[in-house]
Design a binder for these strands. Structure first.
Lengths: 214, 214, 214, 214
DNA sequence: GATGAATGAGCTTTCATTCAT
DNA sequence: TATGAATGAAAGCTCATTCAT
């Protein structure tokens, strides 16, 4: 028997891994499309499979359940959100700019991907109780907390605030951002002839002028 | 055939109408409880009927579908919200107090009835209309607009604002209130050791001091 | 409104109950046929429904699961077995005849209904662990114990035995009867050119002569 | 092409055969464990493969189907049973001892391997051949007949019986042994506070004393 | 020969809705 | 009108088996 080329072995395994990634991605993409069209409960595994170009049976070795697909989609979304906000934050030259950049990045991330807002809200009631293990909940909280910490840090520095005050300010800002997205996306903002940019600018202006100098 | 007493006919009809109201209410109450426990998709007509103390077949003469029950529940909720906010508004002695009272009434209405927030969000199975006639959507918007007008009016008076400015301020406040409720109810507020009262007070204080005098 | 005839009400309810009994019976009969043809695991709810002349959905209000259908079938079988053995026992004139009659009734009951032997054996391994609640197991044991008690009683009287000895003898007889049925029905008896009647007579003759007098 | 060393070819082939034996054994062992845990229908090829340390695809060159695995397991079991009974029989010094030893060997073989009793009963998915070629059925009968012949032979010698009488006695004994195992393993023996040893001793004692002398 | 992803049919169960009574 | 059994479709998921690699 000729010795086996270890590179061959390695590359074979690597290819296997890559293929699996690709297969998972196809399913995730299909699921996202179906979730958008039909909602979480309205999405059937059959529809997801059809959209992903495979059969239902082919999904289960990749994901143990529909809820697991959802969880991964949400986790990825929060990950991308964090990266996006963090990059804006990092590149801004000073605390004032950092805060503004981070908040606007948050908004524009979700504005460009309206579906991912819905993804987060499913967590609420769309998910059957058993679906969201406390485990997953904690993990998602952790990812979100990372993003919120950026806002809190900037507020702390900028306003020369105590830790509790910074938390309060961050909460207020977070609430506003979430609410702004929702009223924007549900079209309720049009009731008042308003738009997302306008209220975001308005809110940030007030906030920055309160926190002071520069 | 003897002539029919028209009064008897009328009272009979009246009784019929009243009875139907009562029957509808039983179903609505049952449905609300089931929606709370299981979510909109998770609620079955059988469960709703059981909770309402009737059979599935008995529901259909009263409501044409499950979605119709949901729609009525939501409409009633918005109606009650409006009444609640309007009462607080009316009873407050001056614009400043009116604004504060209205905003706090909005929050406390939903804080005491967390399920009704979820009710509103189902509307978009996430965030987009589904299974809801544009007709109904318009009707719901109208009810919500009534409530928002109260806020807008108070802001207008209080801040001596132009109409567009008042709309902008009302939008910002509305976004904050909605967001505050959501981050509160989803438990995301605890990530920052914060609570609904604190951020509401904080936001209103800033708003009122900006709008000035009195 | 004329007073409602209570007999009518009563008869209506009675008819409802009777109808339900009939519906259940149709399902039970269908299930028995399918179990015979395909085994317990091989029987699908679709097949049972088809055999019963209804759809799968129509079964579930009547029985919560396939295992429940099986459990009822088995319980009924044991009940009939008991009645059959008990009647033979009761009608026989003396202990010697009682013992013989009871044993032969046991055999002929199952000889005429070979499927019900299989029914009892599914209990073993064919049933998923969760399927056989300890509850049910206990209930089935109780029914079987009633039948065994008849044998034990007769042996006790006939052989003038102590209680432990009577239990031992009853166990031996029971084991033989069960084994005889199984080797008969599996066709393994033909390996030895034998048949059920012959070995049953043989065994009983030995037993009775051992127990003695009369 | 250089001439191939025929010894090399032979040894290569021998190794292939031996390897295949080993592979088959791994699968059989895995299957036995899974059948025990989950029953015949409950056992999936995936689970068997996992237990055997291979993949599902690797099983099919070795066994054409799940039923084939089962058939081989059962055949092996009957083979071992025969060897066990035959050894006890052979080593016993006289007919009386031979009979006793063979019967007890039969019982203790199955008592120590309760799963193999179940294995035999699956044959009838209950009690009737299914998925089993008549061919195999005949083969299994032959193996079982070998074992029964030992009992028959001993009875014949011991009791000085005619051939038909010996067959009858062997059938009765076989029925008792099978029944004893089943009531033991299904726990039905406990209903009468009895146990396998007691009823076996009892039955054999009666039998031996009937057959007489020595 | 071994792999393990994929198939396609099958499973049990649930549902909104209908309709004979 | 009220009932509640029945329908028929669909759900999530599993399976023995196949086959390209």
């Amino acid at each position: 028997m000729p010795p086996v080329n270890p590179d061959f072995e390695a590359s074979k395994e690597a290819r296997e891994v890559a293929l699996n990634q690709a297969r998972r991605q196809l399913v995730l993409d299909g699921a996202r499309r179906v979730f958008n069209r039909r909602g979480l409960d309205g999405a059937s595994m059959r529809a997801i499979a059809a959209e992903a170009g495979c059969t239902t049976g082919a999904i289960y070795p990749l994901f143990p359940s529909k809820e697991a697909i959802y969880a991964e989609l949400l986790a990825e979304s929060l990950e991308r959100l964090h990266e996006c906000v963090e990059a804006s934050f990092r590149l801004a030259p000073n605390p004032r700019a950092k805060l503004k950049a981070a908040a606007l990045a948050f908004l524009s991330y979700y504005r460009e991907k309206p579906d991912e807002v819905a993804l987060g809200l499913y967590l609420w009631h769309g998910l059957r109780p058993r679906g969201l293990s406390p485990n997953l909940n904690a993990q998602l909280n952790r990812r979100l907390a990372l993003t919120l910490d950026l806002l809190r840090g900037a507020l702390c520095t900028l306003g020369d605030l105590t830790e509790p005050s910074a938390r309060l300010e961050a909460s207020m800002l977070f609430a506003f951002l979430i609410g702004a997205l929702i009223v924007h996306q549900t079209g309720r903002l049009r009731l008042l002839d308003s738009d997302l940019d306008a209220i975001a600018s308005g809110h940030l202006e007030v906030l920055l002028s309160r926190l002071g100098k520069t």
